[in-house]
Design a protein around this nucleic acid. Structure first.
Lengths: 140, 140
DNA sequence: ATAATAGTCTACTGAAAAAGTAGGATATTG
DNA sequence: CAATATCCTACTTTTTCAGTAGACTATTAT
């Protein structure tokens, strides 16, 4: 029941950007360095964040990343979705139900998994990047 | 955020035993066969369940497993604990905090992880084996 | 007694997923 | 047009999960 490092790194990086919201683009290199995350790995993560419009970018010299919106309006669930984190406790209640369980019709546990999934989703739906950010020490 | 097959198999097997509660021991072979789970793997799972007193056993011919208590009194959280499923969304809020995060002191996300963990634990604490069992078709 | 049965326990192996790396392509600035 | 910084795909390594193997112990029925 653990979140992947991709998700955790994404959140850390985004909190970092949140602290600098409205002050222009920040280079990936800086974030990676300050947060102690592999630059290449973080690059990959930001690729997903950008496709989901969580961040917007500017290429070339002086370029970098910045939040696509105010931290207070960015829900955690959208970040998790962007990096591909599934919140389903079992695959059979995942959004992409490609691998359908043959037992699902008679599965006595299924309603509970659905419920648990809702509870978890609700959690991430009710918190924003700003919520986390306000606990962070502002530095720089 | 997925539960392991160990957990799911354990639940399925225990629901099976729950349907036969009070009617003597059931052989592992039978459960494995009916549930389509590897006998050896299930054996390993029951080893943990027994150590946690979720099930009790009888060795030798005519032996087998049966629930250690009434299904209605067996909380899901105890089953999950028995098979070693962690409900912590990140390792730093796990019960065994062996691998301590160096950032944990200033981690802005941590209070949220603690909260999420509580929510998930609450879920499994508030449901019993009987809850799941009552959705199961009784057969035999 | 003892042979057959059924669970006990540890260690190992294979498979899958997660974590991280590599490198060329593309766009932008000065 | 050269330097910079992101874009994108594919690959490798590491870790965890899933499953297997096999020798051991207790119990029952004969």
């Amino acid at each position: 029941m653990q979140l992947t490092t991709r998700t955790r790194y994404a959140l850390r990086a985004l909190v970092y950007l949140g602290q600098r919201y409205g002050r222009g683009a920040v280079q990936l290199r800086e974030i990676a360095k300050k947060e102690g995350i592999s630059e290449k790995y973080l690059e990959q993560i930001f690729y997903r964040l950008r496709r989901a419009s969580i961040v917007k970018t500017k290429k070339g010299p002086g370029g970098g990343y910045e939040l696509g919106d105010n931290p207070a309006t960015i829900k955690l669930i959208d970040i998790l979705s962007a990096v591909g984190e599934s919140l389903a406790p079992v695959f059979c209640v995942a959004d992409n139900k490609t691998a359908r369980c043959p037992r699902s019709k008679n599965c006595p546990a299924r309603p509970y998994w659905e419920k648990l999934k809702e509870v978890i989703e609700e959690f991430f739906n009710n918190h924003t990047l700003a919520d986390i950010g306000k606990n962070a020490k502002k530095k720089g």
